[in-house]
Design a protein around this nucleic acid. Structure first.
Length: 499
RNA sequence: GUGGCUGUAGCUCAGCUUGGUUAGAGCACCAGGUUGUGGUCCUGGGGGUCGCGGGUUCAAAUCCCGUCAGUCACCCCA
């Protein structure tokens, strides 16, 4: 080590711009994040997939136009005609894969992947040319309207597991159709919608004067700018509508259907115990033209978006599949890594290799909750009055119960004693039926080990699906859906798993 | 594609404004010693094309030009 390592022969090589070398400690840090992503995905009922690292370049230009080629690493075989490109995102691959098998896939289909992506951009903080990104997508309709909310909760679940809280991190939400309706109502021609989305997107990055100038340049009128400024202010709750702009009641009326969809997302945050994370932001529209409904971004102070996603209801069709609604998000490892490090939430950031090894060990082998590919429990409702208890119970089981000792100590997210009851793989049904027999079939088809049947007043009946027998509580008979109870149903298979 | 900052030992950096003897520090590494077997302390040691190229000068890490690389921001953001 101490002697001169470089030979006078040979030349030295540098890693390509915007790429990273992962020495042992760095790779462990990455695994801490990716294994957490994986565990959280599985617990939320998502299945892991992957696709090729490169695709026909056309797959990307068909969606985004030829202009995107300059941001791709593209190549062709020596003497070959086909142009390929390293994948810059997963959505086209996903749409292609889904379209190819659409008829035989379950509806909805919950898929995740944690692949590397490549973009030929200029690197800067939080943006590299090769990075790792977690993608979660729900494709196809369930009976519920909560698909978007369900999806967002997965992202929040991961951040929460990694130690982020609503005080330093929130999910900004909006619905693109709120704007298209407003645009329509304001008499803006459809060809100008894209420009107006850009305008909305830049709202907080430009001064009022710049906003006016920007709008006039693409052919808007002064009145329209005044109107839209008023709409942003009303929507964000910053002010009453100003004189001369669109009346607040009119705004509410025009946008009611889309606002209701957003409210459903907000409700889902509440039902799953993540209320504080949800935020409205009327200026959040996201650049991509393919979003058709809700759009969201996970934001934290001082960082670019940690995750972003939304609803894309006509993309599967674009890739040759049947018309299928879908929503998804992506979360990159670069920004997240910066964020965790800055908040003291990255194990081994101080070079403590032992702590880092323990952290990865805990995440992967079970001290923090083993990840069962088979669902630990399938939760169904036996009574209409208990329907509303399913989502909260599933969320509670997936979250686990943190231990008092850990909480009082102010422990780190990766500490082995974090949970009194570890997080589990829990699933609700996607079926609309109330037929208990069918619901149990659904549970067996999902290969669940147990089924929790929720009755009124938080009573839970527990079945071992492998042994086909009921597991009654020794003294109370039924179990409880409330984690504060001694006979909380989560305790039962927490005990089973620990032997 | 545009702009700001940076590039000196394996790592983190000082020195550059006001050019001038063998270019420094801490950590790391190696050797020896001390401490009654490991993270203490002491002593010594190896290791540097001062990113690269050109220019100005008697003399350049230092000033000027170019170039490459890194980084941050803009553009863009799937």
């Amino acid at each position: 080590m101490g002697s001169k390592a470089q030979s006078t022969k040979g030349r030295s090589f540098q890693k390509p711009k915007g790429t990273r070398d992962f020495y042992p400690l760095e790779l462990l840090r990455r695994r801490y994040v990716t294994e957490t992503w994986r565990a959280v995905s599985i617990r939320h009922g998502f299945e892991e997939i992957d696709g090729p690292t490169f695709e026909h370049a056309e797959l990307y230009t068909v969606k985004s136009g030829e202009g995107i080629l300059s941001e791709l690493f593209s190549f062709s075989r020596e003497g070959g005609d086909d142009l390929y490109a390293l994948r810059p995102e997963f959505t086209p691959t996903l749409a292609r894969m889904y379209a190819a098998q659409a008829a035989s896939l379950p509806k909805p289909c919950r898929w995740f992947c944690i692949p590397n992506f490549f973009r030929a951009e200029r690197p800067q903080r939080g943006r590299l040319r090769e990075f790792c990104q977690w993608n979660c997508d729900i494709i196809g309709e369930g009976f519920g309207t909560a698909l978007d909310g369900e999806l967002e909760i997965v992202a929040v679940g991961a951040l929460s597991t990694l130690g982020m809280t609503p005080t330093n991190c929130q999910v900004s939400n909006f619905h693109r159709n709120i704007w298209t309706r407003i645009f329509g109502h304001a008499g803006i021609p459809e060809q100008q919608f894209a420009s107006w989305f850009d305008w909305v997107d830049r709202y907080f990055r430009l001064t009022p004067e710049q906003r006016m100038e920007y709008a006039l340049r693409f052919g808007a009128s002064q009145k329209q700018v005044t109107d839209m400024t008023g709409v942003v202010q009303v929507m964000n709750g910053e002010a009453q509508a100003q004189a001369g702009s669109i009346d607040e009641h009119v705004i509410r009326e025009v946008t009611a259907p889309s606002a209701a969809a957003l409210a459903a997302v907000s409700d889902h945050f509440r039902d799953t115990g993540f209320d504080g994370w949800f935020k409205w932001d009327a200026t959040l529209v996201r650049g991509l033209a393919y979003y058709t409904g809700t759009v969201f971004e996970v934001l934290a102070e001082g960082e670019r978006a940690i995750a972003g996603g939304g609803r894309y209801d006509n993309l599967i069709e674009l890739f040759g599949g049947p018309a299928t609604p879908a929503c998804g998000f992506g979360m990159g490892d670069v920004v997240l890594g910066n964020l965790l490090t800055d908040h003291g939430l990255m194990p081994g950031a101080d070079g403590d290799a032992g702590a880092l090894m323990d952290a990865v060990q805990n995440v992967t082998t079970g001290a923090l909750g083993s990840v069962s590919l088979r669902p630990d429990v399938f939760v169904v409702s036996a009574d209409e009055d208990a329907d509303g208890d399913v989502v909260p119970l599933v969320a509670q089981l997936r979250r686990g119960v943190e231990s008092d000792t850990w909480r009082e100590r102010g422990g780190k997210p990766w500490d082995a004693d974090r949970y009194a009851i570890p997080p589990m793989h829990a699933r609700p049904t996607d079926k609309a039926t109330r037929n208990l027999k069918k619901l149990l079939q659904d549970a067996e088809r999902a290969r669940a080990r147990f089924c929790a049947i929720v009755h009124t007043e938080g009573r839970v009946q527990l079945k071992d699906l492998d042994k086909r027998e009921d597991l009654a509580h020794p003294s109370k008979g039924d179990w409880s859906a409330s984690p504060v109870d001694e006979h909380y149903v989560g305790r039962r298979w927490s005990a089973i798993r620990n032997g």
